[in-house]
Design a protein around this nucleic acid. Sequence first.
DNA 1: GTCTATAATGCGATAGAC
DNA 2: GTCTATCGCATTATAGAC
Lengths: 205, 205
Amino acid sequence: MPAIETMNTAAKRGRPGYDQDSVLTIAVELFNQHGYEATSMGKLADRLGISKSAIYHHVPSKEDLLRLALDEALIPLEAVVQDEHTHQRSADERLELFLRETFRILIAKRPCVTLLLRLRGNTELERTALARRRELDRKLAELVTLAQSEGSLRVDLEPRATARLLFGMINSVVDWYREDGPLNASALEQDAISMVFEGLHAHKK
Amino acid sequence: MPAIETMNTAAKRGRPGYDQDSVLTIAVELFNQHGYEATSMGKLADRLGISKSAIYHHVPSKEDLLRLALDEALIPLEAVVQDEHTHQRSADERLELFLRETFRILIAKRPCVTLLLRLRGNTELERTALARRRELDRKLAELVTLAQSEGSLRVDLEPRATARLLFGMINSVVDWYREDGPLNASALEQDAISMVFEGLHAHKK
DNA sequence: GTCTATAATGCGATAGAC
DNA sequence: GTCTATCGCATTATAGAC
């Protein structure tokens, strides 16, 4: 029979009694509030209600907390490229799916995506994450170009600028969307998608 | 005759020989690179090539640098509200002018606007600046509502969400526009404005 | 307008006890 | 899984010389 003490490993409730995931969740919250660089392990310890050194039992360094959080945003965002490529036919449909799925990940992983969007590239880790982000920009611009050549999108807009503006609008949601707020996520998604494809102007009959 | 030494006060070139404005310009650059909280007076001193204490000759505190920078962004942005209200007739035209003028200030005062957009509200000064920003959001949402009631804008979009998405798209420009880059500012302005009003879809004949 | 020197505090991380 | 104590260095800001 295994020793009864091994059950403690799985026990996540208690009082403090943190594991890596629960530490990470609070850490990301603080990183978003003060910026990664300005968030000290001391502030994080205070917020967790434990000592600084106790944090190092769960995670080897401050930078590892950042790495874990960025992967939690980037891995699903990168999976969108695979998804839309597999299922859809026209570039127009693929573009819409790309934007919708990005929006949904942004809502589902809002704290981690927020952290990603605020990186400045001051360390090698940050620069690597920013390079992965730029690759997503490139894929979106590629889809815009493709949809233009298929005739479903206006051709007078520069594809790379258009991709940046599209991501700019979608990504801005992390700055003001709140789960407990008055706005419904799927209605917001519909408004954003409809606005970029059809425009604000009322159609003339 | 005034003493010849008084000329030094006006002389801005020399080697170091900084004045408040030149210190502020470099400070804002560093605030944007590392975040305000994470930018130390020591790093700023290193970047300026002078000692920490020399900075305090030009500015009374780190927070005053932030205050000066935020005013440089907020005062012209707030003036837009006056401008568009005075000159234009229809809410539709006023809305377009509001967005175009905001875009232009964003390009002209990019470093200071960038700093403003990244605030998290961790001090009283930051919270005051964020309240001034929210007032601009409110004015834009008001214009959207007005344009809807005049019949020039579709009425199926929620005005406050629409205002946030519009600002989100326009504001995102600070993250990727570069004065020395391949994109022309007025062409970019035209693309953004045309995209939000007419949409991405090619018009059916 | 700049310097050196200094004060008091906070930083990321580690050692080792319980 | 948490603690106290500690290391070596960075932090904002001030005092006072030149």
